[in-house]
Amino acid sequence: MTEFDFPAPPASRPLWLITLADLALLLVGFLVLVQAMGAERRPALIDSLRAEFGAATPLARAAPTSVPSPIMPVAAAALRFAPGSAQPIDPDPDLARWAKAALADPRMRLSIQAATDGSAADVDPVTHSPVVLAADRARAAAALIGPTAADRLTLSTATAPGQRRAVVSLVFSGEPRRKSP
C-alpha cells in the first residue's frame, strides 16, 4: 500500500471559524440570559462580573442628578469653583483658543457639564438653589469660550458630591445634517 492509495481528506472549514461561531453563540446566549433576568437583578449581576474581573469597588449607580457623560468625549478641560461662587478659580486663558481650534471640524460639538457639590454652602447666594448655581457655572464657562461655539454648545447641570466644577468636553457628533435641495 502506498501513500497514493489513501483517500483524500474531505474539504472542511478552518478551525478558527468554528471557534469564532461558538464564541458568538455563547455571547448571544449570555445576552439573552441577562435580558431575561429582569431589570431588578441586573445590577447584582454587573457587580459580581466586575468583582470577578478584579474591580475593587462595585459600579456606582448614577443618580438622576449626576453629571451625564457625553456620547463620545474626545478631549476635555475643567474649571474649578469656590463654594457658592460662579467665578472660576484660575480660569484657563487658552480655553477659547482650544475651543476655536477644536470646532474647526464641523463634526465636533462642545458640551459643558457644570456641577455643585451638594453641600449647604454650595448654593446660589440669592435663590439658595444648587441648580441655579450650576447653571451660572456652565454659563461662566461658556462666556470664557466666547461666541465661537454658540451654535454647537450643550449645557447641563447636576449635583455631584465633592465636585464644584464645569467640564468642557469636545464631543464627536458625526457628520452634520445636509439640507435637502
Rank of each mutant, 00 (worst) to 15 (best):
V28N: 02
T157W: 00
D5Q: 08
D122R: 06
P58A: 02
A160S: 13
F81Q: 00
A149N: 10
L49V: 15
L110S: 03
Q35L: 14
V168T: 14
R139I: 02
A115M: 01
A82S: 10
S111I: 07
A158D: 03
R107G: 11
A55M: 02
Q113I: 03
F6D: 09
G84I: 01
A135D: 01
A142F: 02
A104S: 13
G29M: 07
E52V: 12
A143E: 13
I46L: 12
G29Q: 12
G38P: 10
M72R: 13
D47Q: 07
I46S: 05
A86G: 06
L153H: 03
P9Y: 00
S169C: 14
I89K: 03
R137D: 05
R13E: 08
T148L: 05
R50V: 09
M108W: 07
G162W: 10
P91R: 02
A96V: 04
A77V: 09
A60R: 15
Q87H: 12
A86D: 05
A141W: 01
P125C: 14
L133D: 01
Q35N: 15
A63V: 08
S85D: 12
R50P: 01
A56W: 03
P130V: 04
R177L: 15
L110W: 00
M37H: 04
S48F: 08
A75D: 15
A104Y: 06
R109T: 10
Q87D: 13
T157K: 00
T148I: 11
I18E: 14
L25E: 15
D92S: 15
P130I: 02
I145N: 02
L25R: 13
V167K: 00
G162V: 11
A99P: 09
R109H: 14
A140W: 00
S156Y: 05
I71E: 14
A158W: 06
A143N: 13
L59I: 10
L79S: 02
V74S: 11
F172H: 15
W98P: 01
R80H: 11
R164L: 07
P73H: 06
A8M: 07
A115G: 01
D47W: 00
G84V: 04
L27H: 07
V67M: 13
L110A: 03
V74W: 11
A158E: 05
V167P: 02
T148S: 14
R178M: 12
L79F: 04
L95D: 07
Q87E: 14
E3G: 10
A141Y: 04
P130C: 04
T2N: 13
T2I: 09
L103K: 02
T65M: 10
A11P: 00
A62T: 11
P93W: 12
L170V: 12
A78D: 10
A36S: 14
S66L: 00
L144T: 06
D124N: 13
D22E: 15
L20G: 01
L45W: 12
V67E: 08
P58Q: 01
A62F: 05
M72Q: 13
A11K: 09
I145Y: 00
T127M: 04
R177G: 14
A21C: 07
A142P: 02
P91Y: 08
